[in-house]
Lab assay of single mutants.
Amino acid sequence: MEVRTIKVFTTVDNINLHTQVVDMSMTYGQQFGPTYLDGADVTKIKPHNSHEGKTFYVLPNDDTLRVEAFEYYHTTDPSFLGRYMSALNHTKKWKYPQVNGLTSIKWADNNCYLATALLTLQQIELKFNPPALQDAYYRARAGEAANFCALILAYCNKTVGELGDVRETMSYLFQHANLDSCKRVLNVVCKTCGQQQTTLKGVEAVMYMGTLSYEQFKKGVQIPCTCGKQATKYLVQQESPFVMMSAPPAQYELKHGTFTCASEYTGNYQCGHYKHITSKETLYCIDGALLTKSSEYKGPITDVFYKENSYTTTIK
């Protein structure tokens, strides 16, 4: 009895394709271990004539594949690729409408935090270190965002349907971005203890939790000093293409032309909904596939993004 075979390709990165001759009487799992086709788990399936010449994702289970996976995804987590594939199996079914010149995501599976993050990423200057993220990001900007969303979920250790947080998501993504040249110098002034300067680099240099107003941050924000008295913390120097200011959701007025974009969060910790506000020729609110415009805006804002380049204080 002759062994019926077909020729397929296996890959971990969709760049390096490895030619395989597979036995049609055995499952993919018996031949390769966990195997995925377009995100779908085909591990328990036997090869079919229609699979001839198709590319299958496999887990990096030998040295060659491990090197290829690390170079593309910059992670050695053995569960990463499987999590990416199972997320992709959902995100490829989502709709990605162009809204006001940006790629958004039609609401499904509690994905409003991903839509808000995706919209924000198209408006701030950011370059990702893992080629996987950078490639998928370019495709997302062009309207094909399924891979990018699935990668975000995998890097953030999230599953489809789980509630997510924009600030946490951005923080994970910033860790995989090139923020080497970003720098922030802060000064804390206390009447009792004097003053202390701190220099922050990388992710810490672009994120701040405690106030939404970048102007206020430049002037000074009140913080408790270690001595128990009130101290003032203010920005001395900022070198970065953008800054992200966050605070627990509270009524906040966004003035046209003073910011790049913002995240609105309605609801409580267990259950809520994100919308995205962007400042173009007027203010726009993007909620999944829905767009509304207004000249002014007041609502429960939790993150505001500002364009920056270089700032030095005039406070002496």
Rank of each mutant, 00 (worst) to 15 (best):
D77H: 09
L102Q: 05
G101C: 07
G33V: 05
Q196E: 09
R66A: 13
Q134P: 02
G194E: 05
M85W: 13
I124W: 04
I286L: 07
T35V: 15
T199Q: 10
E162F: 02
K54N: 15
A136D: 04
D135S: 10
V166W: 00
Q197R: 12
G53H: 11
D180R: 09
T199C: 11
C182L: 08
N14P: 13
L212M: 03
E296Y: 13
D23T: 14
T313W: 13
M26I: 13
D77T: 07
T91L: 05
G143S: 05
H51T: 03
C182K: 10
K233W: 07
G194N: 05
R83W: 01
P34N: 14
H48D: 15
Y172Q: 13
V304R: 05
I301S: 00
C156Q: 03
L81G: 03
F148Y: 04
Y284S: 10
K95F: 10
S310F: 15
A142R: 12
Q230A: 12
G202T: 04
Y274S: 07
L88R: 07
N147T: 10
A250V: 14
A69I: 10
Q20E: 13
N14G: 15
G39N: 09
K307Q: 03
S213V: 01
L118V: 09
E144L: 06
D38K: 09
T75D: 07
D13T: 09
C227R: 01
H90Q: 12
H90N: 09
Q122T: 02
V21N: 13
P300G: 01
G82I: 14
S310D: 11
Y306V: 01
G202P: 01
P300Y: 14
Y84H: 01
H18T: 12
C227M: 02
Y306G: 06
M245K: 01
Y269A: 15
E296I: 08
H48Y: 10
Y28L: 08
D135P: 00
L102V: 07
H74A: 03
T266L: 05
M85L: 12
F174K: 06
I286H: 00
V58E: 05
Y72P: 05
S263D: 00
A205H: 01
K92N: 10
E125G: 07
Q196H: 14
K218M: 02
A140L: 13
Q122L: 03
K233N: 04
T292N: 10
K7F: 10
